[in-house]
């Protein structure tokens, strides 16, 4: 009953997965919610890579975006508010064979889970982290989040958010051992797909901040950006996110940015006048903690027994 199936190698080739094979129940996000487009892009990436559904684990915290595992096939872990990353890293630590997706939001990741965000980036385990950043608490109905723009009216700050918003890109880029930082908007499906695909293909923790529309509580902010693409700055480079033909014409502001250039990435991230979209930074050489934490997985039971006895010998009387 235990162990790998004898035909495991044949199995993968015999099966072909369609988009439906990656979907679970019908999403219950609001009409017009940006999460729907993100979900579609993830499904496409899964199909493109023909990921075995049973090897996928989608981990989330609490919030609108954290409902994502319920709409993904395979295994899901819809855990505690702010704590998706430690769980995801724990799964990966002793099961490097699994394909881990993390769905989190601006409140979940940048507020209650901020400590885990910083440290998970430093661990750089091979997982894909998508932050659905709508700049507001949606599920609990319009409270200020760390990325709510200054002076935006919320139920907790009815006269306007008191502080300037946190900049998730500069924080992420400031973490040592960071290996992948991208930013994208939910309303550009081809670029979103390419971004998520690049993130998933990257070995290490790929951190993608997705600017996401909340048509119910945060309509004004993103409408402005959608209506006026001059607010955006497209980053392109041969080592960056591939920009599908024609898509580049949507962007009046473009910049060729080498994603291996960390100081330049920090400069772009810190400039609040334009919202950069594309790959800010990538380092394929960064240390992956899962390679350390999965040590000893191949050890046989006989070797383990010998190990226990060696350990006991040291305490022998």
């Amino acid at each position: 009953m235990f162990g790998l199936k004898s035909d495991w190698s044949l199995n993968a080739n015999d099966r072909y997965f369609t988009l439906d094979d990656y979907a679970r129940s019908l999403p219950r996000w609001c009409t017009g919610c940006g999460d729907l487009g993100i979900l579609a892009a993830i499904h496409r990436v899964c199909r493109e890579n023909q990921i075995l559904p049973e090897n996928m684990v989608s981990v989330s915290g609490i919030g609108c975006s954290s409902r994502l595992p319920h709409y993904m096939n395979g295994y899901g872990f819809h855990g505690l508010h702010g704590r998706a990353l430690p769980v995801a890293c724990g799964v990966k630590s002793r099961r490097p064979d699994l394909d881990i997706w993390v769905a989190t939001g601006d409140g979940d990741c940048f507020s209650i889970g901020a400590a885990h965000w910083v440290h998970a980036l430093r661990y750089n385990m091979d997982i894909t982290v998508l932050v659905f950043d709508n700049g507001i608490y949606g599920l609990t109905k319009k409270q200020t989040s760390p990325t709510t723009p200054e002076e935006y009216l919320t139920n907790t700050h009815p006269t306007g958010a008191l502080l300037p918003p946190l900049n998730p890109l500069t924080v992420s880029l400031g973490v040592s051992n960071i290996s992948f930082v991208a930013q994208m908007v939910d309303w550009n499906p081809p670029l979103l797909y390419e971004t998520i695909k690049a993130a998933h293909d990257h070995k290490g923790t790929s951190f993608v901040r997705i600017i996401q529309r909340c048509p119910v509580y945060m309509e004004s902010l993103n409408l402005e950006m959608m209506d006026d693409p001059t607010n955006l700055l497209l980053l392109h480079h041969e080592n960056g996110i591939p920009v599908p033909e024609g898509v580049d014409r949507l962007f009046e502001n473009q910049l060729e940015h080498d994603p291996s250039n960390l100081p330049a990435a920090l400069g772009i991230a810190a400039d609040r006048s334009k919202m950069p979209v594309g790959l800010l930074y990538r380092n394929d050489e960064a240390l992956c903690y899962d390679e350390l934490s999965s040590v000893g997985l191949d050890m046989s039971y006989e070797e383990k027994l010998a190990g226990v006895n060696t350990a006991l010998d040291k305490f022998s009387v």
Binding site: V87, G90, K92, L98, H116
Partner: peptide, 18 residues
């Protein structure tokens, strides 16, 4: 881990995965 919560979260992740 980075804190007590992450420590147990990490353990729960490994446990969940078998």
């Amino acid at each position: 881990a980075e804190d007590e919560i992450a420590a147990i979260g990490f353990a729960i992740g490994a446990s969940y995965a078998g």
